[in-house]
Design a protein around this nucleic acid. Structure first.
Lengths: 125, 125
DNA sequence: TGCACATATGAACAGTTGCTCATATGTGCA
DNA sequence: TGCACATATGAGCAACTGTTCATATGTGCA
């Protein structure tokens, strides 16, 4: 059992406050998760986790317009989650950080635990 | 070095396609990361990872309105990331899944690697 | 019962996001 | 050079999101 801590005890509040993540970490964390929080980007990163691909390949593989893919790659590049490599007129992309694979795996564990749970789902969508 | 795979080779495309995450997993993953992709929710979950807290406590701790906190808790409850416990008129919340802690840790590793990197930041915000 | 407090919810609004369409940039080859 | 192809970018727009403000629900206590 977890111990209750405070309710309206300002001393405890500020003690706890000091143990929390600092602002920069919070912002960076949320930014990272936010990038991963879109099905298109999850699909792109999942594909790139398996092999290097050029923009066209990704577009066809996932059934997206090349423009949409390029826009997303720009974002992912900006966050340095993927890295481009020019080869003639094509640009091949790869994952730039294997942590992403770990995050996906851990995220899937979470998802599977939730799927296993007995409580009814609320919003199908 | 990673081996290039295909460009416009339909057989390879469909072979690769079969190795990708299924639609349900992609959607669930993105949904999960999306919930974590907001500074307010990161802060709330970070606090709850340390101790059980009631709505008021969270609001004061993080400098948010009680309404805003309640709305976010509703969302987090819906995703079963937090769990409420009634005690009189107060409702205490706790983390409902320790995987979140792991995700935060792994996310922070990623963030710290990026912070260490030599490339210039583009958007400060 | 009725009042005060803790939480929850709904509507509304500003800010953000991901797409499409049009256009620009960059590269290879005749 | 000039044309075709691959990618990148910008504007614009519909959909979504997180907050506030107002109000509802739930609980303890006099």
């Amino acid at each position: 059992m977890m111990t209750r801590v405070f309710h309206l005890d300002p001393a405890k509040v500020s003690a706890l406050k000091r143990t929390l993540l600092g602002n920069d970490s919070v912002v960076a964390l949320a930014e990272t998760f936010n990038v991963l929080g879109d099905t298109t980007r999850v699909r792109i990163l999942d594909a790139l986790a398996r092999t290097e691909l050029c923009v066209q390949d990704i577009a066809r593989l996932l059934g997206l317009s090349e423009s949409a893919v390029s826009h997303q790659l720009r974002l992912l590049r900006g966050m340095r989650l993927v890295r481009p490599r020019r080869a003639g007129r094509m640009v091949y992309y790869t994952l730039d950080d294997q942590h992403i694979v770990g995050l996906f795996e851990q995220g899937l564990e979470h998802v599977e635990e939730k799927a296993r749970a007995p409580v009814a789902r609320e919003r199908a969508k």
